[in-house]
Computed example of a mutant assay.
Amino acid sequence: MAPPTQTSASARPRTAPVRGSRVNRWLGHRAAKPVGFVLACLPFAWLVWAAFSNQLGANPAEALIRSLGDWTLRFLVLVLAITPLRVTTGWSSLARMRRMVGLFVFFYACMHLLSYAWFDMGFELSEIAADVAKRPFILVGFLAWLLLVSLAATSFNRAIRAMGAARWQLLHRAVYIVAGLAVLHFFWMRAGKNNFAEVAVYAAILASLLGWRVWRRLRR
C-alpha cells in the first residue's frame, strides 16, 4: 500500500480574499472612531482659529456663516455616500461611522444657524422670526434644520427600540428631504449673485447618491 502523499503548500486551494477586508480591518479598529471624530472636528477648529486670528477676510462674519454652511453640505454628502460605498466596495465596517457622521451634519448645521443668529441678527428673536418669514432661502434652511433636530434626537439605540425599526427607518428617510432643502437653500442664497457653479456640483453629487438608491430599489 502506497504511503499517503503530502499536499504541498502551493498545491492547496487558496481562500479568496474577502473584498475590502483590509479596509474593513482598519475601519473596525477601536481607534477608527476617535480618529474620525478628530478629523471631523478639524474644519470647525480651523474656522475658530481663523476667526480669532483675523484670517477670514474683510467680512469675517459672512465668511464664517458660509463656511459652516459649506461644511454642513459636505458632511451631508458624506453621510449619504456611506451606504453606496459600503455596498459597492464591500467596506461593511463603514456602517459604524454613519451615526457619527450624521451627528456632525447636525453639529455643523447648528453652528451655521448659531453664527447667523449671532452675527447677522444679534440674537434678536423677533428679527430672526421676521427674516425667516421674509426670505425664502432662510425659511428653507430653517426647515432643513428642524428635520435634522428630529433625526439627531432619534439617532440613539433607545429611540430605535422605542419607535420600532420600521417607523425609525421611515423617519430617517427624511434625510433625503434635508438634502433637497439644503441644495435649494444654497441655490437661493447664490441666486442674488448668479453664481451657481458650486451649487451645481453639490446638486449633481446629491442627485447621483439619491439616484443610486432609487436604481437599487427598482432592481429589487
Rank of each mutant, 00 (worst) to 15 (best):
P3F: 13
P3S: 13
T7W: 07
T15F: 12
T15E: 14
R19F: 06
V23S: 07
N24I: 08
N24V: 10
R25I: 09
W26A: 13
W26D: 07
H29S: 12
H29R: 08
H29A: 13
K33V: 14
V35R: 02
F37E: 02
A45W: 02
L47R: 01
F52W: 15
S53N: 15
L56S: 00
G57F: 01
N59V: 13
A63K: 06
L64C: 05
S67C: 03
D70V: 14
L73Q: 00
R74Q: 03
F75C: 05
A81Y: 01
I82K: 00
T83L: 03
P84S: 05
T88G: 10
S93R: 15
M100V: 07
L103C: 05
A109Q: 03
A109F: 03
H112D: 03
F119M: 13
G122L: 01
F123W: 01
A129G: 10
A133L: 11
K134H: 15
K134W: 14
L146S: 11
L146F: 11
L148K: 09
S150K: 15
A153Y: 10
S155W: 05
S155P: 10
F156W: 12
N157H: 11
R161V: 15
A162V: 04
M163V: 10
A165H: 14
Q169K: 15
L170Q: 15
L171C: 02
I177M: 13
A179F: 03
G180N: 05
A182G: 10
G192E: 00
N195K: 15
A197F: 15
E198G: 10
A200R: 12
Y202E: 08
Y202R: 05
A204G: 01
I205C: 03
L206Y: 09
S208L: 15
W212P: 09
R216W: 11
R219Q: 06
